[in-house]
Amino acid sequence: MKIGLFIPCFIDAFFPEVGIATLQLLERFDLDVVYPPDQTCCGQPMANSGFETDTSGAEALFVRNFDGFDYIVGPSGSCVHHIRHHFTGVEQTAAVSEIRSRTYELVEFLHDIIKVDAFPWARFPHKVGLHNSCGTLRGLRHANASELREPHFSKPESLLCKVEGLELVAASRPDECCGFGGLFSVVNESVSAKMGSDKVRDFAQAKADYIVSADSSCLMHQRGCAERDNVAIKFIHIAQILNGAAA
């Protein structure tokens, strides 16, 4: 199975360890993982701001980079959500539709496609609060949403439960957005920062040692809030835990 490794721009620049963990984790399952070196950005920042026509160059490049893979896998829910649901800056050819439907966020790829049943190399003896980003929760449907009358399910939870020693703790407002929101974080910075502070405090009150997420953008924002507020809590991407990060 040939996998195109999609490393979103901000993960490349700020969170290389997340990209590394994703690559190593996928390779543990004997997948042929290829990193196309010419990737930049999926177009999400422009699209979410309404600038659809300004996404066309980035989206066309994405299509060129990721043509021909069985699956395209990236460790960022919001970017994958963009590709699957909003990637309309380029003409919707058969190839584009194919690429869009073959693009998976890491958690759903592990859970739905290769159906991982164990992570024997992973041990994480800590209390962990799971933050589902809004893109993964309500966009990609990683888990049931608290607003809907539907049975409980959670793909990230079911993966994390396979990690030895890991204890999940729940925030009191489990689905509350943390306030990152891309450009929202700077255009509406005071509301954004307040939402982030409230989110971090909620996890701290649940006695979480770590906040884990499939989205580094939410974590980047929450970490900035925690550091500003002197809340002692650590942040880690789910790929790192599943790949066996010690702490």
Binding site: D12, F14, I20, S185, V186, E189, G224, R228
Partner: peptide, 25 residues
């Protein structure tokens, strides 16, 4: 990525810590 720089970001939050190298490197 963020059109008006990080000034607004830094008002209520700490900046992200730049790593020694990118994933690409």
């Amino acid at each position: 990525v963020i059109y008006n720089g990080l000034n607004a970001w830094g008002k209520g939050r700490e900046m992200p810590h730049p790593p020694a190298e990118t994933f690409h490197q």
